[in-house]
Simulated assay, not measured.
Amino acid sequence: MIPDVLRQYQSEIVEALGETFVMVGVSVVAAVLIGLPIGTFLFLCRKGSLLENKWVYSILDTLVNIVRSIPFLLLVVFLIPFTRLLIGTAIGTAAATVPLAIIAIAHYSRLAEQSMLDVPRGVLEAAVAMGASVKDVIFKFLYVEARSGLVFGLTTSTVSFISYSTVMGIVGGGGIGDFAIRYGYQQFKTDLMLYVMIIMVIIVQLLQFVGTTVARKIDKR
């Protein structure tokens, strides 16, 4: 049975969840389309790897570390001018996706690099010995061997993105976290806050379960 307080704010909760899914969805897409290639270059350009390049590795490694080391709330504020320049406004759900996408790229690129480091070196050496091109090594060997770790890393990252999205009310991004603050905390409705927290825990648990299950099923080891 749905509690009365949830029934009362049903439409607002649905809207807030939709905003959260938009922000997290854009972050996941950015992580895969940009973060994964950056993580791949980090792996390939490190010392002793296939495309060893000290300068490229140092630049990418430094940029990733800088973004990941800045407290997210400060990063959101710092990126307001860039967000306004990029999409014409610094307020709203669309604007909130910009800092989220940037932290998502940095976060997942590092996890992707770590997943690839777990691939046995002999597999890549054998691929090169067979005359495989760099493209073939990446898509037919590296990603195949690291796929379980990549999926698990993306799952972990997505959970983090959901957590990051809860503070996007500072730029009018909305989302379920902003709803809990405005309608729960600020209006002294502790029960509403508790129910929202339970909803988020359920969503995260389902996401973690699906991601972990997929990662285990595609693990070749």
Rank of each mutant, 00 (worst) to 15 (best):
D191R: 09
V210I: 13
L85K: 13
V29M: 06
T83W: 11
L86S: 15
I34W: 00
V214Q: 01
G35C: 03
L36Q: 00
R7Q: 14
V123S: 11
S11V: 15
M1N: 14
A96H: 05
Y57A: 04
I199R: 05
G25W: 01
A106V: 08
Y164G: 01
D61V: 08
V119C: 00
R147L: 10
G18W: 07
L60E: 02
K47Q: 11
G153M: 10
L6G: 12
L42W: 01
G175T: 03
A95Y: 13
T89V: 05
L51C: 10
T213P: 01
L86F: 14
T20C: 06
M130E: 07
E12G: 06
K54F: 15
E113G: 07
R216P: 04
R68H: 14
I162N: 08
A16M: 06
G169Q: 06
M130S: 06
V14I: 14
Y183N: 14
I91V: 11
Q187L: 12
F161G: 00
Y57H: 10
A16E: 07
Q114I: 13
T158S: 08
R46K: 10
V29G: 05
S157K: 01
T213G: 04
I13N: 09
K220I: 15
V76G: 09
D219F: 11
M168I: 07
I170S: 10
G18I: 09
V5H: 14
V134C: 08
L111T: 01
R84H: 12
L33H: 09
I176C: 08
I70T: 12
Y108F: 15
T155R: 08
V196I: 14
P37I: 09
L85M: 14
V167T: 01
A106L: 08
F78C: 00
W55M: 11
S133Y: 09
G131M: 07
G35I: 07
V22I: 15
T83A: 10
A180D: 12
I87K: 03
Q208L: 12
V210N: 04
A90I: 04
I203R: 04
I218C: 06
F82P: 02
M197F: 15
A129R: 05
C45R: 10
I138K: 00
F21Q: 09
K217A: 13
I202N: 02
S115W: 05
M116E: 03
L73Y: 03
G211N: 01
F141S: 12
G169I: 02
L50R: 08
K140F: 15
V5A: 15
G169T: 04
I170F: 13
T62K: 14
L117R: 11
S49W: 11
V24M: 05
I59Q: 04
R121T: 07
L42E: 01
W55H: 09
L192M: 08
G169A: 05
S11N: 14
